[in-house]
Amino acid sequence: MLAFLEKLDRRWVFLLMGLAVAIPILFPLPFEYKPSALARSVFDEIDRLPDGSRVLFSFDYDPATSGELSPMARAMLYHCGKKKHKLYVMALFGPGKTLGSEAIQEILLKYAGDDYTYGEDYVELGYQTGNEGVIKVAVTDLPQMFPTDVRGTPLSKIPVLEGVENFQAMDLLVAVSAGDPGSKQWIQYFISAYPKTRMVTGTTGVQSVSLYPYIPNQLAGMLGAIKGAAEYETIVNAKYPGPDGKPVPELTEAQRRMGPQLTAHLLMVSLIVVGNVVYLMGRRKAHQSGGGR
């Protein structure tokens, strides 16, 4: 047995992980999530703004990370919609533009469509190449970076952009970010230079560790990974439930995905324990055989 574990083919580990994730997807595990202080501060930051404030919403992720980030992006978009904030939607990742448009159609217009008319209450600026260069330029001159919106209308002809010459006119930045360019670049090139605009972010579990140092000065709040999204969904559903008074179905997605996360984490812990037992037994065996020589 020890010999088998010592030379364990990694495909066995892959199989176990596959099962650990697949089973809770097929048989969901219902749990309730207690909101953390960070999730609460993201909610408060969006909620405390007067209705109709200007919010820059950046979809800085792609399909690879949408499993982890889409639920939180949608929950924050829903929340902004309920607050009737003016939304300026853009992306620093190419595919983020499409993901943003989908979220607007499937969440914003579905649940707050009465309050949102394109051009008057929200605008899609789309994606521009240039990574952090996009932020650097648009922070001082928006039309230079985005001459038109995604529909080809010049920015000067869009009512919701009246008085918006650059990003500095925003009250809040919501960046849902998978990496670079993303939250860190927003902080470096926008928020640090113009701290009057507040910022909240949603990010992957891996990225969140490197963003902790920016809390609370540059970052007012952060949703880390699917757990952060699940907590945020709980708060939003409690204050702004769906039309039938129940949680919005689309805003239970992160909570559903926490089941596979639980079993996967338990498997990881078990694997580490088994790995160490094998290591210690192997060392003792080597020590004993060495002593007999």
């Binding site: 990694r10 498997l267 990881m268 580490i272 088994v274 790995g275």
Partner: peptide, 21 residues
Amino acid sequence: TSTMFALLAFYVASAAFRAFR
């Protein structure tokens, strides 16, 4: 791309099993 990203779950498990001693 989602599949490629999801592969990380498997690699993290095998790296943890091997490296966390």
